[in-house]
Amino acid sequence: MLLAPLLVIALVSATALLTPQLQFSRLLDAAPALAAAMFPVAGTLVIGLLAVLASLGVADAQHDIGQTASNFSLIAIAAIALAAAYVSRMRQRHERTLAEVRTVAEIAQRALLRPLPQQIEHIDLDVLYQAAAAQACIGGDFYEATQTSHGVRLIIGDIRGKGLPAVDAASVILSAFRVLAPGAPDLPSLAEQLDTSMSWYCRNLPDTLERFATIVLVEIPAGEPIARVLNCGHPPPLLLQGGEVREVVPSAPSPPVNMADLLDADYRVDTIPFHTGDRLLLYTDGVSEARDADGSFYPLAQRVCRWSFAPLPDFLEHLRQDLRAYVVGTCADDLAALVVHRR
């Protein structure tokens, strides 16, 4: 790729010498223009100088030095080379800015979505996360897991909307979860406190009613082969047991976060069997609502059956690759998946 400008100079010069009547030498200005996209300023100027020398060589071979057409070609190549050097400088400046933005995004992601440990007490964890925004590392989907006196507690959720407002709201819920999860007596109390935190955050915002989050809270006690699940308007988790997959559909609806005042604030916890070797897959709608070329949703429950016995490090990698093959183009939404395996 880096040799492309030199190849342009060589091919155009050879063609110009073989077909003098067509004046192909005027195309030599394509070399510095191409160099601006891949070389620094100095390299672009060198390519421009080589193009000028090549134009002089062609003109000398054709005995056109000093002619108006030859002089015009030389001036055009020199002018385009200078313009290309300026474009190269601006490109480098934008690349540095983009690199800084990416660095800030990566730092923000590590602060907001901290890497989860592979093991907490009696469970193994693995996470898949992908932001929809181009060049972004974070979005409106979030997750967290923490050890408490009640067992391991987990959260996965999705903020309505995208962009920085969604990231800001996600940070509020995650911060509240990290502070409140260890001390909350049960999942309904934790959900109520998260709702209060979100409502307090949204109290002075103009679009308060449009800012809400769907979440799933899970509690896995160490001494019992069960898991407690509280679903606040979120896609139902999948329970993988003995090669079979079933949705953990809530027995009664619970309000999304920041909608308890508008809807019934009764939080319902469902207790499910969760034995050694069982897995629980938590995910956001970026996974379940991914579409193929025909507009069909991704059949998550059917697909995960194929690799339900795969080692945990490979489980979500299979999911990531299968999603990539299923979706046409890029995913249009943030997506997150958190798999929990009981040891």
Score class of each variant (00 low, 15 high):
residue 104 V to F: 04
residue 118 Q to V: 03
residue 103 T to G: 13
residue 50 L to W: 08
residue 12 V to F: 08
residue 94 H to Y: 14
residue 331 C to S: 15
residue 135 Q to G: 06
residue 209 L to W: 04
residue 165 P to N: 01
residue 172 V to I: 15
residue 317 E to V: 06
residue 198 M to P: 07
residue 276 T to R: 06
residue 29 D to N: 05
residue 157 G to D: 12
residue 193 Q to W: 15
residue 270 D to I: 08
residue 332 A to Y: 02
residue 175 S to P: 01
residue 328 V to D: 10
residue 34 L to P: 00
residue 124 D to P: 00
residue 123 I to S: 02
residue 126 D to M: 14
residue 111 A to E: 14
residue 338 L to P: 14
residue 35 A to M: 00
residue 28 L to F: 13
residue 117 P to H: 05
residue 8 V to N: 00
residue 94 H to Q: 15
residue 111 A to I: 14
residue 290 A to H: 11
residue 65 I to H: 08
residue 273 P to R: 07
residue 120 I to T: 04
residue 305 C to D: 04
residue 310 A to N: 10
residue 84 A to P: 10
residue 2 L to T: 00
residue 17 L to T: 13
residue 8 V to F: 00
residue 188 P to L: 03
residue 261 D to L: 13
residue 262 L to M: 12
residue 342 R to T: 09
residue 78 A to N: 01
residue 214 T to V: 12
residue 78 A to S: 08
residue 40 P to H: 07
residue 110 R to Y: 06
residue 285 D to W: 03
residue 289 E to L: 15
residue 35 A to C: 07
residue 228 R to H: 06
residue 184 A to M: 11
residue 260 A to N: 13
residue 2 L to I: 00
residue 260 A to H: 14
residue 141 D to G: 02
residue 300 L to F: 03
residue 291 R to M: 10
residue 108 A to Y: 03
residue 23 Q to A: 13
residue 230 L to Y: 04
residue 12 V to W: 09
residue 338 L to R: 13
residue 141 D to M: 03
residue 221 P to A: 05
residue 69 A to C: 08
residue 93 R to D: 05
residue 277 G to K: 05
residue 214 T to G: 09
residue 120 I to A: 02
residue 159 I to L: 08
residue 86 Y to I: 01
residue 127 V to A: 01
residue 129 Y to Q: 11
residue 157 G to Q: 10
residue 226 I to M: 15
residue 20 P to L: 04
residue 217 L to M: 13
residue 273 P to E: 07
residue 91 R to W: 00
residue 253 P to G: 12
residue 242 G to P: 00
residue 198 M to Q: 12
residue 169 A to P: 15
residue 211 R to N: 13
residue 280 L to K: 08
residue 233 G to Q: 15
residue 78 A to W: 02
residue 123 I to C: 12
residue 18 L to D: 03
residue 272 I to R: 02
residue 191 A to C: 06
residue 339 V to R: 03
residue 31 A to I: 01
residue 180 L to S: 10
residue 22 L to R: 09
residue 55 S to R: 01
residue 138 I to V: 12
residue 192 E to W: 13
residue 215 I to D: 09
residue 41 V to K: 08
residue 52 V to Y: 07
residue 285 D to E: 10
residue 12 V to I: 15
residue 162 K to F: 02
residue 253 P to L: 15
residue 124 D to V: 01
residue 22 L to H: 08
residue 246 R to Q: 07
residue 263 L to A: 11
residue 173 I to S: 06
residue 63 H to T: 08
residue 204 N to I: 08
residue 90 M to D: 12
residue 257 V to H: 01
residue 119 Q to Y: 13
residue 100 E to H: 04
residue 242 G to Q: 12
residue 139 G to F: 00
residue 186 D to C: 02
residue 217 L to I: 00
residue 63 H to W: 13
residue 109 Q to H: 11
residue 201 Y to N: 11
residue 88 S to A: 15
residue 63 H to F: 09
residue 328 V to N: 10
residue 343 R to K: 03
residue 36 A to R: 03
residue 234 H to M: 06
residue 134 A to T: 06
residue 219 E to T: 00
residue 131 A to F: 01
residue 55 S to E: 11
residue 81 A to M: 14
residue 35 A to W: 00
residue 241 Q to D: 11
residue 294 D to Q: 10
residue 94 H to D: 11
residue 251 S to Y: 09
residue 84 A to T: 00
residue 121 E to F: 02
residue 15 T to E: 14
